[in-house]
Design a binder for these strands. Sequence first.
DNA 1: AGCCAGGCTACCG
DNA 2: CGGTAGCATGGC
Length: 210
Amino acid sequence: MNIILSVYKKLYRMYGPQGWWPIDNEYHKRDFSYPKTGRQQLEVCLGAILTQNTSWKNVEKALENLKKNNLIDPKKISSIDKKRLANIIRSSGYHNQKAKKLKIFSRFYLSLKGRAPSRDELLEVWGIGPETADSILLYAYNQSEFVVDAYTRRLLASMNIITEKFAYDEIKLLFENNLPKDYRLFQEYHALIVENGKNVDYNRKYSSKK
DNA sequence: AGCCAGGCTACCG
DNA sequence: CGGTAGCATGGC
């Protein structure tokens, strides 16, 4: 069995099913039928943007605030005053940048008229980089795109499978070429890597930033 | 009381 | 091209 798959099994034994992406603060373990509504789909997209270089705790509050203001809605986000939006999502950090990102994404989301975006389309949107694009495709659209984040790099580097300077797409392909193309597996695997990253101290030695 | 988090853009050489 | 400063709050 290849090492990528055996690492998955080991993590799964250690932590069990994760039930990502959290929606309304809940982790739907062993249920891969989410998102169930357009609103949930948008919530995943917004969360993916808000969590950029930010702990999920801080994002939860921002999402709660958005809900309180009835703002999980692309039209409302498009039209709300940017300063006001920034204040609502303040707890997620970089709130001025992220307010802009949410507004630009909402416009884009509306332009899709319900269809799924391609990865290239997402990458053309200001504020959406490779990890956010893959998170959106994997968790909001249930497409088999593997998500690579800082924890993924640290994990593979700690096992000497990669060096720190592997490109995003190289790491992504390493997973996708060694796993059955199954979005449920991809969802669970990435979630397990993050859970593991939160619990394991890599001594910051393998961080992508210095 | 620093250090860091589920990154990305802009700008520099 | 590759490298890096800037963005910002809250948790530990």
